[in-house]
């Protein structure tokens, strides 16, 4: 019989550590519970490096404590002069060589993973989404499918979705901790990364590069659904009629106001590529308003009437005529009924 836990011991410790860290944070936000390929790849290296470094720290602390206990000046030793040692070749070699080996143990998998995550060889056949970072919202254009949306990114599980990212203003950084590490969104070049979610779910995304006053409110969602549901969502989005009249009378007034108050100048409904503001095609299915508020009519009215109080420094403030409370309610009624697809966050098991 092999000793405690036998050969599986390292694996067990590995698992314990992962379990311990998994207790940290909110599910579908924390990087400690990876639900996608990139996040797993990062987490493996995080755990490997913690183990190596904890080993080093333990040795340092051990020597440190022993030194302090044994060699602290004691009563009656006031005149004791210790031996003046110049050094010790063997010891110094040991503590040079061992760290080199430890670093190599971490370096090799790091290099492998770095190249692995940068692999774009299958991008051409895969799903490609053009991602645009804006102060302070995200735009998603499903390349080849003529589908556009903002803030909520729908992806199928088990498939690599390639994101071709560029910024329209300052640098942003696209981060969905549960699915993948982050990548910067620069104004001058297209950066490509991929998302591969293992499980269905609604994952929280954040901007990770300081981009102005509302940097901390530039949240978005990645909604991972089954491949069938994803296909359904794409076809639903493609068949949207942007001119469709709402059934509800209040919403009909809202639609008229949407044009009258020049909302339509910036916000597209349907797949217009030229809109400068967030696309509102499936606004009624959005998980949040302005990226972080609950999708209630009350919040939407507040967002429309006083955007500055919701997102300081946003580009909507002052770019449309005054909207009264009542008018805002009508616009809200119109926007909240925009729900072209049955595939929503509920399909992602949320």
């Amino acid at each position: 019989m092999i000793g405690w836990m036998g050969k599986r011991k390292p694996l067990f410790l590995f698992g314990m550590l992962a379990l311990l860290l998994a207790g940290c944070g909110k599910e579908n936000l924390t990087a400690f519970e990876p639900k996608g390929y990139g996040a797993e790849s990062s987490m493996n290296l995080i755990i490997l490096s913690i183990i190596i470094m904890a080993f080093v720290l333990a040795i340092v602390l051990l020597v440190y404590v022993i030194t302090l206990v044994r060699f602290r000046k004691k009563k009656g030793q006031e005149n004791f002069i210790p031996k003046q040692v110049e050094g010790n070749k063997t010891l110094e070699t040991v503590w040079t060589v061992i760290p080199i080996i430890l670093v190599l143990i971490l370096a090799v998998p790091t290099v492998v993973a770095t190249f692995d995550l940068a692999d774009k060889s299958e991008a051409q056949d895969g799903i490609n989404v053009e991602v645009t970072g804006n102060q302070y919202w995200w735009h998603f254009n499903y390349q080849g499918d003529e589908v556009q949306t903002s803030q909520d990114l729908y992806i199928p599980t088990g498939e690599r979705v390639y994101l071709n990212m560029k910024s329209s203003d300052v640098i942003h950084s696209f981060w969905v901790p549960s699915i993948s590490g982050k990548m910067d969104v620069n104004p001058e070049n297209v950066n490509t990364m991929y998302l591969e979610a293992h499980e269905e779910g609604v994952y929280w995304g954040k901007c990770a590069e300081l981009c102005g006053p509302s940097h901390s409110l530039m949240d978005f969602k990645v909604i991972a659904v089954s491949p069938e549901e994803y296909d359904q969502w794409i076809s639903d989005m493609q068949s949207v009629d942007p001119e469709a009249n709402p059934e509800d009378a209040v919403a009909q007034d809202g639609k008229a106001l949407f044009e009258e108050k020049s909302c339509v100048a910036c916000h597209a409904i349907g797949s217009s590529p030229n809109a400068t503001g967030p696309n509102l095609t499936n606004f009624g299915d959005r998980t949040k308003i302005a990226g972080y508020l609950e999708p209630t009519e009350e919040n939407l009215v507040k967002w429309i009437t006083d955007p500055e109080s919701v997102k300081p420094g946003n580009k909507m403030t002052g770019n449309y005529p005054d909207v009264s409370e009542e008018e805002a309610e009508q616009i809200a009624a119109y926007l909240l009924q925009l729900s072209p697809s049955d595939i929503t966050t509920e399909s992602a098991g949320n």
């Binding site: 990139g38 990062s42 995080i46 790091t110 995550l117 590490g181």
Partner: peptide, 12 residues
């Protein structure tokens, strides 16, 4: 610092 040096871990 060493943990941060591991590029893929640093993505997080």
């Amino acid at each position: 610092g060493v943990m941060l040096a591991s590029a893929v871990a640093d993505y997080q």
